[in-house]
């Protein structure tokens, strides 16, 4: 196997892994967006809550599974708390209301986390069994933990697909995303539905956060930047479309990783000096937002809008 192929495969896996984490964030966001028509900036806080709870419970108890369940349960509960106390009151407001209220929620969450865990970063450990590498092909051993992220993410994506497309709850979600008023008129209990959708989104965000914890540092405000990337994913994928979020998340994951990996050699061949070294990583980030602007301009409904519409 040539070194070039190995590199390509490894970077693809990296892109896939990053994309999967983004998908878990974006899936909840796009559901909330699609069903309730709410812009939720506080979604990043749920990601943070999941990461903090899992990292600290794992560190204290030594059980990764306990950490994971606490993280998901905690994020879900906080999400439901948000829904019941704040979101119910602003569903009827305009998008500006949503932006402001959830911006406020984000500020509060970041500070509450800072009060409990302090301002310094936590550095979460990888569970013992996943600390090594897995030999995938000759010359390529990939970190087991990152592989686990990919596997878990794909499984969750599959479950979500079944849930949305093959169950009664999914049907109701799709109906509400398609036409809220009509669904309500036909007897869909939107109060319960909204809470369920919100809780589901929160659980996914918590899962994403706790899986990301060992890859990034666990800090107050850690969700904010992931949040903005998730919005990019949601918008590119088409608001309300879980399938779109999945494809767009992978797209963003690949653009980011390949941009970081291959933009530099590309720029280096075009420009003299160390322009490439310095500019490439930031250019990769820039590329993502440029992509979003282009998509919004030509296809405001997103690349893969919900089929039901």
């Amino acid at each position: 196997m040539s070194a070039g192929t190995v590199l390509l495969v490894e970077q693809s896996l990296n892109g896939l892994q990053f994309g999967i984490m983004l998908f878990l964030m974006a899936a909840g966001l796009t559901l909330v967006f699609g069903v309730m028509n709410v812009v939720n900036l506080a979604h990043g806080s749920l990601y943070m809550v999941g990461a903090y709870l899992c990292a600290s419970v794992f560190a204290a108890s030594g059980s990764f599974l306990l950490g994971v369940s606490t993280g998901i349960a905690g994020a879900t509960l906080v999400g439901i708390l948000f829904e019941v106390t704040v979101f119910r009151r602003i569903y009827d407001g305009d998008h500006l209301d949503h932006v402001l209220a959830t911006f406020g929620l984000t500020l509060i969450c970041n500070e509450v986390v800072r009060m409990i865990w302090g301002p310094t970063a936590l550095f979460a450990a990888v569970p013992q069994g996943l600390a090594g590498q897995v030999q995938l092909m000759p010359g390529l051993s990939y970190p087991a933990y990152r592989l686990a992220i990919i596997v878990v993410g794909l499984m969750v994506a599959g479950l979500l697909y079944v849930l949305v497309n093959r169950t009664r709850l999914g049907m109701v979600i799709r109906a509400s995303a398609s036409n809220r008023t009509m669904a309500a008129a036909l007897g869909v209990n939107d109060v319960v539905l909204y809470t369920i959708v919100f809780g589901l989104g929160a659980a996914l965000a918590g899962l994403s956060g706790l899986m990301a914890a060992p890859v990034f540092a666990v800090t107050p405000g850690m969700g904010d930047n992931v949040l903005i990337l998730s919005f990019v994913v949601v918008v590119i994928g088409g608001i309300g479309s879980v399938r779109g979020a999945f494809l767009a998340a992978l797209l963003i994951g690949f653009v980011d990783t390949f941009g970081r990996a291959f933009l530099r050699p590309l720029l280096a061949s075009l420009f003299a000096g160390n322009v490439a070294d310095n500019a490439a990583p930031a250019m990769a980030s820039l590329l993502i937002y440029a992509l979003m602007a282009v998509v919004l301009f030509f296809r405001p409904q997103g690349l893969f809008p919900p089929r039901t519409r």
């Binding site: 070039g4 190995v6 590199l7 990034f216 540092a217 990996a261 930031a282």
Partner: peptide, 16 residues
């Protein structure tokens, strides 16, 4: 980038 904490892409380049 100073804010980057995930080095997977760079580590793959080193290996290659």
């Amino acid at each position: 980038p100073l804010s980057q904490l995930d080095f997977s892409a760079e580590l793959a380049q080193i290996r290659a």
